[in-house]
């Protein structure tokens, strides 16, 4: 909850350099488009306050103007990236499976494009003072399902193929990865976290992990790919092994 701004950062999802160099135009257009509402707001502010007898109001509200600017930027970044995402998803709907790590492979290519579209809102919204803004608010728009009464403010969560139930506690600095890179293969697989699951600090869940209702993962441990953690049981270690039933 109190982790410094330098550690919050943006998404560590790697984007293939061959794709990033060609399609960086999308990234820049999203940034420029999200600044348009800001400049509109700024124009209105100038028109309204820069008059004779109102100069003092102009200076008075200037700090609040900047604060409002940041919030408008954050909301518009979500709006425009969702707009681009829906277009990309219409061209090629996202699906799970193992693919070749090659530009000609359609799934791998569009996965990278989706990450380019998501990069800017995730980067901007990480610097919001409200702790729930990045994960609980922004990620819901980008395609993760997060239930009610969840503590997940300091975890890094992949922005697609994740389903988190109710009353879940995710630990400080743990990561949930739905993608895996194994030499020439690229794997996308769904992670399902059931109701009432507790995950400790500094954990990492690999792609395809299924945590059933009430499963518990102790701090500083990781799961193997496609591991299933059984109902109401405790897991601990590297990789996680069953400790005992409650």
């Amino acid at each position: 909850m109190f982790s410094p701004a330098s550690l919050k950062g943006d998404s560590p999802t790697p984007i293939d350099e061959r794709i990033r160099n060609k399609y960086i135009v999308i990234y820049f257009t999203i940034i420029i488009l999200s600044f348009i509402p800001c400049s509109l707001f700024e124009y209105l502010y100038f028109v309204f306050f820069w008059k004779e007898g109102l100069y003092w109001m102009f200076f008075l509200f200037f700090p609040f103007n900047i604060l409002a600017l940041i919030y408008i930027l954050q909301f518009s970044a979500i709006f425009f990236s969702v707009l681009f995402l829906t277009i990309i998803k219409m061209i090629h709907p996202p699906r799970e499976g193992t693919f070749k790590r090659d530009i000609k492979d359609k799934d791998y290519f569009y996965w990278n494009l989706r990450n380019i579209a998501k990069k800017w809102p995730l980067f901007v919204n990480a610097s919001n003072p409200f702790p729930w803004f990045k994960n609980r608010f922004t990620l819901r728009f980008l395609g993760t399902k997060i239930g009610k009464k969840v503590i997940c403010d300091n975890t890094w969560i992949s922005s697609e193929f994740v389903k988190i139930g109710k009353n879940v506690i995710l630990g400080m600095g743990s990561t949930i990865l739905t993608f895996g890179i194994e030499q020439e293969r690229f794997i996308l697989k769904r992670i399902v976290i059931g109701n009432g699951v507790i995950i400790g600090a500094h954990c990492s869940l690999m792609h395809g992990t299924i945590m059933k209702e009430g499963a518990k993962l102790s701090a500083h441990s990781y799961t193997n790919p496609n591991q299933v953690l059984e109902k109401d049981s405790i897991y601990i270690g590297h990789p996680a092994k069953l400790k005992r039933d409650i």
Binding site: I169, I198, G200, K216, L217, S218, A219, I236, K243
Partner: peptide
């Protein structure tokens, strides 16, 4: 305790 979780607060 049997396992370590985290510190955290609900909304």
């Amino acid at each position: 305790v049997e396992f370590l979780s985290t510190s955290g607060v609900y909304k």
